[in-house]
Design a protein around this nucleic acid. Structure first.
Lengths: 202, 202
DNA sequence: TCAAGTTTGTTGGTTAGACAACAAAAGGGC
DNA sequence: GCCCTTTTGTTGTCTAACCAACAAACTTGA
């Protein structure tokens, strides 16, 4: 449900992958603003018109890429069927922090980061979905009234994590990452205590 | 003249590359004979019909791949504009030996190597072209009569190198590679002595 | 400020690759 | 021998990607 793979044409998958890789490579070389669509298409060895068949502009691709990378990172770190436990929550927070840190390091003039906030915002919806699934799974069958409570909890938690991590990363993460994670985790454990499992399955 | 790049459609280049990579990967996993076109197409994430649009069968792809790999290896090792010197000749021989060695290591039942000789034979024409260019370059302007002499020299040398390297590799290279190269080189230096440069430019 | 050069979107015509379906050939048990 | 499964080529239709060409928007620096 989270992952909609739905038999996608291999050519489409391939082209998007090429464009993503090209962008990621270019981002290492020069500031994002000086990268042109031409650059990306050339590096990806894809026709420029093909670029526009998939993304409206450079930033659209950047958003898409940010989402994909975050999703991959999360899949890689979390266990197969994660449930709402302290350990998983910690992993989730840690992953967000790492993600933010890496993306910010690619913004050459770090000061202009706010202009690129859109890129960072991409991960929040996914974060929300993950938390929502975890909580729903922990609660089991629920009434319509309880459902909104669950959604709100997931929403609040997702923004709490996202915002804190974002601020931490943009401030040059003066605090140690582990410490930050502990602090966020402590807060969430209070707020979500009702749904938390006592270290159940994975 | 040696490299005919002639603006090839990126899709074609990409597909061939994918098929090549897929084959190379599969060759590491199981004997060549048990690899099917289906396997290759699946691994490359390319439609099976597309495979047949480029190659007549599995062995055709194998031939093509062998040529490409050898060419890449040679380009990588030799200087930009190589001329006929002892040093370059040594590099050429060494490269052939390495190439043979690696390809043979992929033939699971090493005994059946002769059935795959076709694959190894792919490199000889290229070897011939390289030698021919070197010698022609060393000779400069020449008469029609001299030209055939040059062609024959290149032909003989190419087969000498190829055959020796092939036999060496198929016999489990009991001789040390460096020793073999020295020996071939000594022979060629006698035969091609007239064309050899005294370590001129690169 | 204007001209020369880039980059940007967009278009229409063309080709490569995807895909499903098929009959024919090749294994491989029993 | 036979049947049953897999693999092989091949075909036709559809669509993604290519490419050249275009006008519009934007840099840049003379």
């Amino acid at each position: 449900m989270l992952t909609n793979e739905e038999k996608i044409d291999p050519r489409v998958k391939r082209t998007r992958q090429l464009l993503q890789s090209a962008l990621m490579a270019l981002v290492e070389e020069k500031p994002i603003d000086s990268i042109t669509v031409q650059d990306i298409a050339a590096r990806a060895e894809v026709n420029r018109a093909t670029f526009y068949a998939h993304f409206v502009d450079k930033y659209d691709l950047l958003d898409y890429t940010a989402r994909e990378i975050f999703q991959a990172r999360l899949d890689q770190r979390l266990p197969k069927n994660p449930s709402l436990t302290s350990a998983n929550l910690r992993l989730l927070i840690l992953t967000i922090c790492d993600h933010m840190e890496e993306f910010i390091s690619h913004c050459k003039p770090v000061a202009q980061m706010n202009e690129h906030a859109r890129m960072f915002l991409q991960v929040q919806p996914h974060l929300y979905e993950v938390l929502l699934n975890w909580i729903e799974d922990a609660v089991g069958a629920r009434s319509a009234a309880a459902e909104t409570a669950v959604e709100t909890a997931a929403m609040a938690a997702s923004w709490a994590i996202w915002g804190t991590a974002f601020q931490w990363a943009r401030s040059g993460h003066k605090l140690a990452e582990a410490q930050l994670v502990d602090q966020i985790l402590a807060l969430l454990e209070s707020g979500l205590g009702a749904y938390l499992r006592e270290e159940a399955r994975a």
